[in-house]
């Protein structure tokens, strides 16, 4: 589903990613963990072209997005993304947030898109907020709308960039529950997270990044239970 080879990313002279090789299988849930500044978010943003790779290749769902000839907008329609700060469109109602891409990009009819949006909002438990504006929702509700919006294009992969970091502790659970459901349904997911419980319980694989490289990866039980590298051990001893 996703294949990354020798990915480098520089911001000016600052090299944030120093050669990442990674493969994500279909239906796999991969959790990226690591200290801040380790490059996890940058790596994730490279996967849908929000950051342009300095060198290396990224193949997503059969498209090589590092190839200049690839239409990045076509790839993005197959890759859903959820942001730390939700980034809902404040001038549009919840339902219009969800319908925007299918109608404007996917050429879906309005009625069809509305039905799909209603189903997705029901799925994330917000059927009663269809006609509300994002500003009237709590953070957890906004993030669930953002997930519904990302799902509206029927993506093959979902990317999550610290989806619960901006939420109050007591509402983190409602967002994680939605993500858990998605994983159970077989969605391919790449999740940058500080929720070690989620990574351990839901993830098929945990990837520990530090200093722009993948230090260690494997089944969560192994990475969390028996980390091989000192850097991983240090990090986990601080966060667990």
């Amino acid at each position: 589903m996703i294949t990354v080879k020798d990915l480098h990313k520089k911001f000016g002279s600052n090299e944030v990613l120093k050669g990442i090789d990674c493969h994500v299988d279909e239906q796999e849930v991969v959790c990226l963990i690591g200290p801040s500044g380790s490059g996890k978010s940058t790596f994730l943003r490279c996967l849908n072209g929000l950051e342009t790779a300095t060198s290396g290749t990224i193949e997503v769902n059969g498209h090589t997005i590092t190839d200049k000839k690839t239409n990045v907008n076509v790839v993005r329609q197959q890759v859903g993304m959820v942001f730390q700060h939700f980034n809902l469109f404040p001038h549009l109602k919840v339902v219009d947030n969800v319908m925007l891409a299918p109608v404007k990009v996917g050429r879906t009819s309005k009625g069809e898109a509305r039905a799909k949006a209603a189903a997705l909002l029901d799925k994330v438990g917000l059927a009663d907020k269809t006609n509300a504006y994002p500003g009237s929702l709590s953070g957890g509700q906004q993030q669930r709308v953002a997930i519904a919006r990302a799902l509206a294009m029927n993506p093959a992969v979902m990317l999550f960039d610290e989806p619960t970091s901006a939420l109050d502790p007591e509402i983190v659970g409602e967002v994680l529950a939605v993500m858990k459901d998605l994983a159970r349904e077989g969605m391919t997911m790449v999740v940058v997270t500080h929720e070690m419980g989620f990574a351990r319980e839901v993830g098929d694989r945990a990837v520990f990044m530090d200093g722009g490289v993948i230090v260690e990866q494997g089944p969560p039980s192994q990475v969390f239970g028996d980390p091989q590298h000192t850097r991983t051990q240090n990090f986990l001893s601080k966060v667990l």
């Binding site: 907008n73 980034n87 891409a101 404007k104």
Partner: peptide
């Protein structure tokens, strides 16, 4: 800028991002 990024992530091209977001 997050608004533009969210629209980009949905696959909206420059003209549509401008017009609708």
């Amino acid at each position: 800028h997050g608004q533009t990024e969210a629209a980009q992530a949905l696959g909206l091209n420059y003209a549509r991002r401008l017009r609708f977001v």
